[in-house]
């Protein structure tokens, strides 16, 4: 990410977290799932920003909050290319890429309407399968495999 590009697109924050290279269209869902707007945190969202790498991307900034890597990884399936920048005093203090955990629990709503996880009061559980560049998930219960595009709903 070039700093110029970033500064042109969204105003800089003094300290906090910038989640960059989020798949276009996923920013609001991520804010909701990570509960980023809680406790009066200031959140700035950029949507469908032009990106050399991705065509279009979303971007999320949270002021005065350091997003822990395990929290970021929890939603990595929505934004597998995301970069997390921890900002302190207008400078990047730490930068890391998200990594999709091998087991994703209590996040994805199984797209299979006949799956037991959609009918019982219970969590969901998916194993991640890496297929070259793309990632698919396999439901622990109904054993069906889904691509990222087939996942339409998440549990809050």
């Amino acid at each position: 990410m070039s700093t110029i590009e970033q500064q042109l697109q969204v105003s800089a924050i003094k300290s906090g977290t910038v989640i960059d290279h989020v798949r276009a269209g996923q920013a609001l869902t991520i804010v909701r799932l990570l509960n980023l707007a809680a406790q009066h945190k200031t959140v700035t969202i950029g949507m469908n920003l032009p990106s050399r790498k991705m065509g279009h991307k979303d971007l999320i900034k949270v002021a005065n909050y350091e997003l822990p890597p395990e929290e970021a990884n929890r939603v990595a399936i929505l934004a597998p290319d995301a970069d997390i920048n921890i900002i302190a005093n207008y400078k990047i203090k730490n930068k890391f890429k998200v990594s999709i955990p091998s087991l994703i629990e209590r996040l994805i709503v199984c797209p299979n309407p006949h799956c037991v996880s959609n009918h019982e009061p219970m969590g969901s559980k998916f194993a991640t399968l890496h297929r070259g560049e793309t990632v698919a998930v396999r439901c622990w219960y109904c054993e069906k495999t889904f691509t990222q595009d087939e996942i339409v709903d998440y549990r809050v």
Binding site: H114, V116, H119, E120, C139, W140, Y141, E143, K144
Partner: peptide
């Protein structure tokens, strides 16, 4: 035996 998929694992 159950009509829902994944019921046995549950």
């Amino acid at each position: 035996r159950h009509y829902l998929e994944g019921a046995a694992r549950r």
